[in-house]
Design a protein around this nucleic acid. Sequence first.
DNA 1: ACCGCAACCTGAACACGTTCAAGAAAGGCG
DNA 2: CGCCTTTCTTGAACGTGTTCAGGTTGCGGT
Lengths: 232, 232
Amino acid sequence: MTDETAPTTAAAEPPTPRGEQTRQHILDTAMRLFRERGYAQTTMRAIAKEAGVAVGNAYYYFGSKEHLIQRFYVDSQAEHRAGAAALLARERDFATRLRGVLHAGIDVLTPSHEFAATFFKTAAEPTSPLSPFSAASSEPREAAIALFRDVLEGSTAKVDEELRPELPELLWLAYMGVVLYWVHDRSPGQAKTRQLIDGAVPLIDRAVGLSRLRVLRPITREVLHLIRTIRH
Amino acid sequence: MTDETAPTTAAAEPPTPRGEQTRQHILDTAMRLFRERGYAQTTMRAIAKEAGVAVGNAYYYFGSKEHLIQRFYVDSQAEHRAGAAALLARERDFATRLRGVLHAGIDVLTPSHEFAATFFKTAAEPTSPLSPFSAASSEPREAAIALFRDVLEGSTAKVDEELRPELPELLWLAYMGVVLYWVHDRSPGQAKTRQLIDGAVPLIDRAVGLSRLRVLRPITREVLHLIRTIRH
DNA sequence: ACCGCAACCTGAACACGTTCAAGAAAGGCG
DNA sequence: CGCCTTTCTTGAACGTGTTCAGGTTGCGGT
């Protein structure tokens, strides 16, 4: 992790790809241009020229222009976690933690609103490797879900024991909904998205609390059964 | 509606555009090719050639390739309504009506699953006129919401009076969620989507019924307030 | 030192969506 | 009928993402 000169001990290690430096350089250049000019306005020729390589070389490392933004997921996810860390270390109340994490996510995304909006359309395509539901992006997705697991497990919330293991994924799904709204949100500073978060969190909090009530148990079970059924 | 030769009486009528026939011919050709070969595989040159016009002529009538699929919305919406008509005339139970309408919607979409999946990505882009939330497609959206208003008003369901006027839009939103799931659904015959409908409808039905309970009134109010806030 | 092979790199060429300057057809008006 | 304006039509040309036949480079084996 600290240096790559030593082959260490493992045998199945990727055999030190020669062009890793080139790969990273192209990626960095692309991300910079995307942020500077926007995704659609950045041509592959411009990326190649700016990075000092041939166009074809970019395609040697990345199957398509879309693949150049997968890094966006990873970076955003890491920033999200970092941005929420202080709050998660401090607060114990479930609603407060959830609210903070949702706001932190939008905080991270905000500088890239235009950029993000443009490429979210490609993410929505089922066949795209960029879809948050696709197998190709399962790693950042799992990381994102883990963040919401942290929200729950570090809190004092009392949750139905059957619901508890499923809840992080549900919270992540809710977050995806917030992001979807945010992408379409044209209000100044995406203020409406902030209102959505502030309004939805207490409702989620209450619903989670109610899940333990004996009278609502059948409904909880029904919801859980539905979730398990439709999950691929 | 039956003939277009007579100028009838109205004055503000669109002054009989000359190329309406050409426009329709291009549209029909495009839709046919989309269904035959898929959206991405159908080139504008192929559409123009097949329709017997120059490629530039297609752009005279339609601003872009995407605009050629707006018809898909309208047609699907009409088919959906027609497909649900018999059930809506027969049944009075809210859950039965809702379930039938949701299934009818998927029935209509099913033959175009691959095609629909391909173009839903463009619909997801906020700036696209094809977005179901955009102003450009407000007409088919309103028609779709009206269908769910019919579901509610023709039923014997007892609903909180404050919730009632908002419910059709919420049901449409739920339908959009079902469609989103359906687009990503790779199970044989999209069977999972059918399970989602069958599982979600009873839950919606119960939630709607509970909205009238005095103890839940504050929550109902809160939900309604949130909806009104975040609606553009 | 040399060979062979895989990894890496090149840029012209291709197919596509889209634009545009130019023209043809149709309608109104004297 | 002749003229003008609006509507419609054309196809070459542009910029884009992507491909590919062919080069170059580095490295292990002899």
